[in-house]
Write a protein that binds this DNA or RNA. Sequence first.
DNA 1: CGCTCGAGGTAACGCGCGTTAGTAACTAGG
DNA 2: CCTAGTTACTAACGCGCGTTACCTCGAGCG
Lengths: 366, 366
Amino acid sequence: MANSTPKAAGTGPGHRLASTVPAHRGVTMADVAKAAGVSRTAVSFVLSNRENASISEETKHRILETVQALGYRPNAGARALASQRSDWYGIVTEIVTAPFAVDIIKGAQDQAWLDRRFLLIAPSDQADATGPNHGMEDAAVEKLLEQRVEGLLYAATYHRAVHVPKSASEVPTVLINCFDADGKLPSIVPDERAGGRVAVERLLQAGHSRIGVINLDPDIPAAVGRLEGCREALAEAGLELDPELVVSGHATADGGYEAACEILDKYQAGAGRPTALFCLNDRMAMGAYDAIKERGLAIPQDIAVIGFDNQELIAAYLRPKLTTVALPFEEMGALGVQTLASLTAGQPITAHQQMVDCPLLERYSV
Amino acid sequence: MANSTPKAAGTGPGHRLASTVPAHRGVTMADVAKAAGVSRTAVSFVLSNRENASISEETKHRILETVQALGYRPNAGARALASQRSDWYGIVTEIVTAPFAVDIIKGAQDQAWLDRRFLLIAPSDQADATGPNHGMEDAAVEKLLEQRVEGLLYAATYHRAVHVPKSASEVPTVLINCFDADGKLPSIVPDERAGGRVAVERLLQAGHSRIGVINLDPDIPAAVGRLEGCREALAEAGLELDPELVVSGHATADGGYEAACEILDKYQAGAGRPTALFCLNDRMAMGAYDAIKERGLAIPQDIAVIGFDNQELIAAYLRPKLTTVALPFEEMGALGVQTLASLTAGQPITAHQQMVDCPLLERYSV
DNA sequence: CGCTCGAGGTAACGCGCGTTAGTAACTAGG
DNA sequence: CCTAGTTACTAACGCGCGTTACCTCGAGCG
């Protein structure tokens, strides 16, 4: 045979924990070939379903049976090495456990699975008390590149501008729920404006014309977009947003509570008090619920509430369940993978920045 | 000083042809060797820091500089192929996006990162309406084995017995937050009993002696353990659990609301009505809050509430914030990886089933 | 009868790396 | 001068696979 020294491992096995190797270890294509009485090439051809290779039906059948019998399992690493393609994408995201990142990952994961690709998930920063830990983020990208990922996804937990490690540029990269300050990389973001619009349209449709807004930090993209959409919807109905009715608060339940108190206590019922509250996120809506209930008011009879984000644990468990606008995390994740697939295939992408719709989720608070 | 790569040298500045092929593509150890005027073996020895290999300090230095200059990055796949170890663990878990699974993944991820290992995450079943999709689960394990993971983690979203795909046995496997019916595989589960105990001890310590319990489905391990712990704590205080005060409900906010109503309306204040509620999960506590508030009672002044699970979005945002017992998901994930590391290293593991403490999280509802 | 052609394969190279078994030069000891 | 023992390396094999170039054999054809 070609291997003039098949016993090269003369030192013998067992130098390191070889004892515990699973029985399966070592069923290779060569084993299959020998057992089936054909060449390794033939096995490879059959398994990769080559068109122009001529293998008789009978041989093919025999090979496939042998594969089954021996329990052969291809070695993805070896295949990647030989074929120069890994079928892996990497995704790096701050704090893997953040409630939102998860849904992005899920969307991406599922889409990748459909495309028969693997998603390597790397934590970026650990969110030390000191703030983002960019050293770790760079290391994560580095590690992913060592795995020879064919593309990178970079996801943020809230919509904002980010700074992407520069080694990421060595491979196609798509940003999800964020965009890079330089505007170089393709990105996928929620259509905040349309989301704000649909929320307020819903309130208008329910007959509300005086709407209070519990705002986020006014500088972040989410607040800017949602508020803009809100204004648009009002404008179309011939209304204007009363600045008196817009209160910013800390993006928590407590912040929402305080903001709601401020709005509610500013006016008497019927004398300018809003009949609906648009809370720019669900956590604040949660606090607003308390403020409203404390005042003996009923949702939605006395005051309607609409949220944003669709944080399941909140929106679906508040009483009454919260009508809210959902952030399309899974869709963005899936679209990210699709975009990456186009890029790695060398196809042009449709748009530099893709916006994904934020659907309204009707529940019972309007 | 660690960031000593400002030059990105070699290719020269502004020479980025990033548009087509990543410039990096194809810098191999052989390239480094040639550029440094040494053999590939020498490079390998230096990079893997071999003890017994003798390379002069000067040569070593030159090699390392060349590595930097060329931007060499090891190819993890090739390394795995040659060294027969991948440094990968696989984790399969139902519904990656489930709020709990995430924390397990995070714990495992972080620990794996510390151990310089990679975690390949595979979705198991898609939770179709038809129930668990075991076909997909098997496929996931299969895919992971193709990647030659050295070990498998199998995580469930809630503590229960599971059925593990049999191909998983080809490689060391550790179960997290679940256990296999056959009792063959090592597992890591929360110590529900101790958790129930600590919760009730806290209530007793606050002076409550008549405690209502909002129970889960009485058959699941969580309910069994937590209730047992509850009884133990009461017994130590010379008390007994009044069966009248134990009400099972659906594991949702609505279920908790109804159960709380039942308990609260059964007695008059002071005439047997409990002064504290032990809710076996936070979602039900959320419903209980509403029931209590509806009756004009204050938490914790009139009625103390303690939960279980520490679902951040609920417990930390309820008003008042909920005192609860945390499920140690991250710890279990980390411990899973550690256990796996022992197993793959051939070391014996300490115990077949490891129980992890559920710490009490003091907030303001007791 | 000589030639081509296609069907049904196989030998052999290389992917990038870890690793073992050398080799060459230069002491140190006898 | 001869051997043994360093130090500083290098040649070459094999990991499991994709892939290209070849090879053999029988049928068809002018």
